[in-house]
Simulated assay, not measured.
Amino acid sequence: MGVEIERKFLLLGDAWRTLGTAVPMRQGYLSSNKARVVRVRIEGEHAYLTIKGQSVGATRGEWEYPVPLADAEQLLALCEQPLVEKVRRRIAVAGHTWEVDEFSGVNAGLLVAEIELASEDEAFEKPAWIGAEVTVDARYYNSSLVKKPFTTW
């Protein structure tokens, strides 16, 4: 079984905007049930099908598989609406990679950074542009943003 240990934070300021390379993403959910999330994602010219189990703290099961881009486009049409649209920057900081997401569409204005860890208590350096932690706040789960978009909060 794959395991994802991920912590999620809000952003401060704009210093992160000059770092990393921006990659557009569109993703949708065939299932957004918290016990079993099934996501389709197009990231640039690549596409993936991801299955995630229920979160326990910052940890959950995760399985991800590449799929043909044409299949992903068709699967997105089957997904719950609206789709999640964002631009992601991967930024290396002190041996870790931060994934910074700037959302658009119905989630415009939301800025979130995530870091994947080897264990929940693993130490990591927080850049100055990292703000409050929202790891256990379900409103910030991408699958939750389909049901209650950020612009409606």
Rank of each mutant, 00 (worst) to 15 (best):
S144N: 14
Q54C: 11
A58N: 11
L83H: 05
H96W: 08
E6M: 08
Q27K: 05
E64K: 13
L110V: 04
E80M: 11
R89W: 00
E116Q: 12
K8G: 06
L30F: 05
D137F: 08
G13F: 03
A123F: 11
E73S: 06
E62I: 08
E120M: 11
R139C: 09
P66N: 11
K147T: 12
W98F: 07
W129M: 01
S119F: 11
R41C: 03
Y29R: 06
L30I: 09
G44H: 04
E64Q: 14
F124P: 04
R7T: 03
I91N: 02
T21H: 10
Y141N: 11
N142C: 12
V40R: 00
E64T: 13
I5W: 09
A35Q: 14
L76N: 02
P66F: 07
T59S: 14
V87K: 11
A138N: 10
L49Y: 04
E62G: 07
E125R: 12
K8P: 05
W16R: 01
D71W: 04
G53Q: 05
A132H: 03
R139I: 05
E102C: 03
V134F: 02
E102T: 02
V100L: 05
L12P: 00
A15S: 15
Y141L: 14
E45W: 04
L69I: 13
M25H: 13
G105H: 01
K34S: 14
S32Q: 10
R90Q: 14
V38N: 04
